[in-house]
Structure formats: C-alpha cells, structure tokens
Design a protein around this nucleic acid. Sequence first.
DNA 1: CATGAATGAGCATTCATTCAT
DNA 2: GATGAATGAATGCTCATTCAT
Lengths: 203, 203, 203, 203
Amino acid sequence: MATLATPQQKPNRRALRMAEVFDAAASVFAEKGYHGTSTKDIADRLGLQQGSLYYYFASKEEALRKVCEMGVGDFVDSLRAIVAGDRPAQDKLAAAIENHLRPLETRPAYVRVFLSERGHLSARHRRAIGRLTREYEQLLADIVRQGVAARAFRADVDPRLVALAILGMCNWACLWHRAERDPSPAALGAEFAAYLLRGIQKR
Amino acid sequence: MATLATPQQKPNRRALRMAEVFDAAASVFAEKGYHGTSTKDIADRLGLQQGSLYYYFASKEEALRKVCEMGVGDFVDSLRAIVAGDRPAQDKLAAAIENHLRPLETRPAYVRVFLSERGHLSARHRRAIGRLTREYEQLLADIVRQGVAARAFRADVDPRLVALAILGMCNWACLWHRAERDPSPAALGAEFAAYLLRGIQKR
Amino acid sequence: MATLATPQQKPNRRALRMAEVFDAAASVFAEKGYHGTSTKDIADRLGLQQGSLYYYFASKEEALRKVCEMGVGDFVDSLRAIVAGDRPAQDKLAAAIENHLRPLETRPAYVRVFLSERGHLSARHRRAIGRLTREYEQLLADIVRQGVAARAFRADVDPRLVALAILGMCNWACLWHRAERDPSPAALGAEFAAYLLRGIQKR
Amino acid sequence: MATLATPQQKPNRRALRMAEVFDAAASVFAEKGYHGTSTKDIADRLGLQQGSLYYYFASKEEALRKVCEMGVGDFVDSLRAIVAGDRPAQDKLAAAIENHLRPLETRPAYVRVFLSERGHLSARHRRAIGRLTREYEQLLADIVRQGVAARAFRADVDPRLVALAILGMCNWACLWHRAERDPSPAALGAEFAAYLLRGIQKR
DNA sequence: CATGAATGAGCATTCATTCAT
DNA sequence: GATGAATGAATGCTCATTCAT
C-alpha cells in the first residue's frame, strides 16, 4: 500500500507546491498590484528565499501570465455553451451573469488580478488575452441580440452597451466583493440579473 | 505697466506649468499604473530632467495623491446637491449617473488614476479618500431609498446593491471608454440610466 | 579670461570623466575578462557607486562594445592606406606590423579587451566587428600577394597563412607585452618584421 | 564470468563518463569562456541535472583546472625530449612547432581553454601552470640558442623573441583553426616552420 | 548515480531622491 | 527653474553549491 502510494504522491506533491506558489503570487498581486509586488513579497508569503521562486516560474511576468490565465479559466468556453443553448434569452443572460460571478467563490484573487493587472503583460500575451475578452463581450451582446430578435427584449437597447453594463456591474463586484461580508456570488448575480432584465425586457 | 503685469503673470505661468506637470503625471499613471511609472517617464513627457520634477511635487506619492484628488474633484459635493434637491428619485438617479460620467469628457486620465491607483496611496491618504467614496456610495443608495419610500421604486430592491451596480457600470465605463470611438458620456449615461431605472421602477 | 575658460571646460569635463570611466572599464575587463568583471569592480576603481555607472553607459555590454571599438580604432583605415601606397611590398609589410603594434603604447588595455573579449558581444555587434577583422586579414594578405606578383616574395607562400602568422605574432605580443619589461612596440615590430620578411623573401 | 567482468567494467565506465563530462566542460568553456559558462550549460550538454555534476568534480574551478591540465598535457615533456635530442636545431624547431600544433587535432577545446581561460584559475593553480609555460618558453628559446651556437641561425636574433613569435603564430592558430576548413595542423606547422626557419637561418 | 528542491550570495539594472551649480 | 551628477536602496534574476531522497 505504502509502495503503491509513493509513485502517486511524487508528482502530486510537485503540483500541490506549484499551486501554493501561484496562490501566493495571485494573492499578493491582487493586494499590491503587479508592479507594487516584489518577488520577495511572494517568497515571504511562502517562507522561501527570493531566488527559489524561479524554480517554479521563469520570470515575474510568467507568474502574472499564469495567474491571469487561471483567472480567465474557462469563462469563455462556458459562456459559449450558454449562448449555444436553446433556452430563452432571459434565462441565458441570468445564467451568464451567474457564470461570470461564480469564480469569485473559488479563486477571487486570480479573478482580481486578471481584471486589474493583465494590462501589465507583455504586448504579446496581452493581445492573446485581449482576443478572449473581446470574444466574451461579443458573446454577451449576442445573447441580447437573440433576445431582441425573439422580441423578448426591447428593440431600442444597444446590445454592446448592455453587455458592457453587465460586465461593469459584475467586474466591479469582483473587485469590491468580500466573502465574509457580502451576499454570496449566486445571490448577487440573481439580484443584478433582476435589475437588468427588467430594465431591458418588453413588458 | 510691465512691472505691474509681471507679478500677475508670474504666478499664472507657474500655475499653468503646474497643471501641465500633473496632466503628464495623470496620463502616465493612467497608462502604466503608479508603480509601473517612473519619474523619468513623467519627466520625458514634459521634456524635463528627472530631478526637475521635484520643483512641482515633493514626492512621487504626492503626485499620485494630487492626481487622485483632482480625479474625485467635486464628485461628492455635486452628488450631495442632487440628493438634497426635491426632484423625483428617478430624475435624481439619472442626474447622478450623468454627474458621475461627466468628468470622462474633461479629465479622463485623472478619473482612471483615481479608480485604479488610489489603492497605492499611503494608509493615511487612502483612508481620507475612502471616507469620500463611502459617502458617495451612501448618497447613491439614499436616492434609491428615497425612491422606495416614495413608492417610485420597487420595495424589493437592495439600495446598496443598486448603488454598487450603478457604480460598477459607470466606473467600468470610465475604464473602457475612448472618446474617439464610444458614445459621449452624456449619451452613455442616458442609456445606462434607462436600463437601470426601468429595472427598479414600479410599473 | 576666467569667463572665457568656463564654457570650454563644461563639455570638456564631461568628456574627460567619460574617458576615465571607459579607461577603468577597459583595464578591469583586460584584467579579469568581461564576464569575470562585475560592474562593482569598475565602479570601485572610479570611487563611484555601482549604479552611478549607468550615467555613463546604458549597459555593461555597451561598455564592452565601446571599449572594443576604441580598441580597433582606426586600425583598418591606416592599414588600407598602407596597402594603397606605392612602396615595395617589403616596406608595406614592415609598416603594417609597426602599425599593428603601435596602440600597444597608447592604449594596451583597449587592445587586449578587443582581442580577448569581443567574442562576448551580442551577435549583432560581433558581426559588425567581424567584418572589420576579416577585411584587416584580407588587406594583410593583399600585401603578400602584391609582393609575390612583384617577384619580391617567394611564389610558394600562402598569402592567407602569412597574414595569419603575422596576426598571431603581433596579437600574442599584445597579450604578453609589458611596457616596463619588454622592448618598445616599435623595436618589437622591427624584429618580427625581420624574421618574417627574410622568411618569405626571394633571395 | 559476470562477476569477473563487473569490477573491470565499473571503473572503466566511470572513467568514460568522466571523460564525457570533461569534454562537455571543455567545449562549453571554449565556446563561452569560464565565467560565461554556467554549470547548467555543462549539465544541459550532458543531459544531466546541474547538481549531478558534482559527482564528477568538486567545484567549477576544479573543472577548469582539470581541463587546463589536460590542455597542456605532456607538451612540456615532449618539448624537453626534443630539445635534449641531437638533431640539428632547424629540425628541432620544426619538430617543436609540429609538437605544439598536434593537440589541435585531438583535443582542440582543451587547448583553447588552456590558452584563453587559465587566467581565471585561483592564484595557486595559476602559478603552478605559469611555471610550466615559462619553462616551455625557455625550452623553445634554448633551441634557438643552440642553433645560434652551432652557427645554423643568425647571431643577431633574439632567442626569446623568436620563441614568442613561434608561440604567437601557433597559439593564435589554435584559436582560429577550424578542422573542417583549414589545413591540417601538420601542414600548418610545416608552413609556419618554413617561414620562420628561413627568416632566422644563416644563408 | 541522479534528481528535485532549496539556499544565499552576487549581479546588472532601475529608481526615487538630493544637491551643487 | 532647471540641469547634471551622484547616491543608496531595492529589484528581478542567476548561479554555484548542498542535500535529502
């Protein structure tokens, strides 16, 4: 049994340590911003020497990149799935909002870093991530367009602006939300969805 | 005449130069973030030597502080005036949104720096500014409360969350808005106000 | 008189300090090699802080580049002039050798750095300098070819190998030569020229 | 049988691996210089982890020392044998040159490292090697002296300078020589010997 | 033998700030 | 006001080396 466990644990330990390292990076980046964070800050939080971090990532920027990537996660994929479904647009929009706020529960630091610090990635990586966010915006607007086409939403709304309004409410919430104090992401999403849906629905 | 003109012009010139310096600081801070900006970046934009900046501010942090202060400007005062007025809550909310977006036209860089970089001020100054933003949030929520009390808004809305939703939509807009491409702040405010008002109004 | 001297001295002082800095860099590079030299080593020799060096060059590699460039100096130009002259090939070869050893007197550290450390320049700058050295080699071989064509030198010598033999003798001399101990560069050149000329001349 | 073979093969394998390790070290040192080489560079070339190198040498400097020692090899011994022989000085000089260039064929990287990097050894080891090179120079000069005494060489040559000229030609050749492109070391030596011998011989 | 993890010191470089001129 | 020169501390990163496994 012990002999069976050992080969499993080896790579597992590595992966776990890796996760700890990026958790530390994410939380310090979230607190102080990318440029306000020194690699020593991250190392301190892990009880490591500064230089030892470079065993886990090749550069501070790579750390930011990985944190940002884990921050977007499968956001776009799951929104794509929602858009492709055949529920009414109202349901899709509510689901989209809930989908957007969900990671607030599991990895808030990653999301915050993605939202506020991705601009400090190198041009190359910024562009790659920029494509994702643009697609995300498009998909949100597509739901609105579907609703308008189905005469569920008012014809006079601007799909892009609605999408941006949703993003604004939700992203801002990601920045101010504190788990100990504020309503759960799900409850928050329901509330936001209600305000917005009633605001753009046909009566 | 010349002798009379000089004492007037001297301080004037100085004030103008001062404004140029803070404009430069604001725009570089907005672009690269506080910690991503070096004093040389600011000096370069002004065609000055690094050290010469210290005639205009005592430290980089003071520059951030002043930029942030000019970023909030009279936001709170004018919102207080709106709340104190005796128009219907719907009008007040629309006015508040418009009020919030207006500086986007005149000093977008200052607003962006205030929104994204004020967290890097020293604890002392952060707290001072924190009081302002908390009051601002309260005032927005007050308008909602007034509307609920007057049975103009639905009883089941959460005033604080509505306030935060508005702040989210508007602040996010401050970050993505580009004058060359996007609707004017006024138009944008009208649109946002419409979505939100219909969403919380009693029918 | 004093007022006349001041405007001259300002830029002069700067240039002099610059020369001091590169002299220091050259001599430490010559002693310890490029990678064996830390910027602190250079700064110490100047009584400066490490970081203050960057007022004079933008990077350690730039320092190496400039030292190397001052190390080659006008070597190639003056050799070109010698080749183009219309003296007998024997005289040209002797002049070339003397020309090659002359800077040993005025800036031995620069020459040594050029000879031993230029390989650590970035590919870009290495190539640029490589073109120079290849031309130099060609020019030396050209003198030999001229001598062969004029039946002054034996027909069975290999011009390229003769050129490389000369370069070897002279460059090696640049590395071991100590002004306090060894014959003057001029005397050394005369000696080398004698050995070599008698070795390739027709009798 | 197997048990008999093992004790023989074990140390053999080890010696072979050892040789591979020093070959790798020599070739990277030759390429990038001692200080420009990291232990990781050497490990990479061997497909090893950095730390694993320390089974083969105790420190990077020891690696350099061994490479340098293998670079000088039995140079001095074989030159001593040549000097002690009773052939005419001309033959001895030609043999010395050939002897000097021979290792270019079998271990060029070692020779190059010895020539260019031995200066980075610790004072202790540098002195030990310095004694060797000084003796080598003396031996070369001795051949010239023998030739002069035997009236085979001109009386007006400076034995030490001739020795240094030979060393220069040959060592420089060690640095520029590429097996794929340039004449074989033997041919090169013959050519150099011809130039030089004719240059110092009595007619 | 070999690895993976870590260390601690060193390095090139940047930066906010100061100050004599 | 403004500059040029310099500082001293910090920063991101590299590296030789060690050691438990």
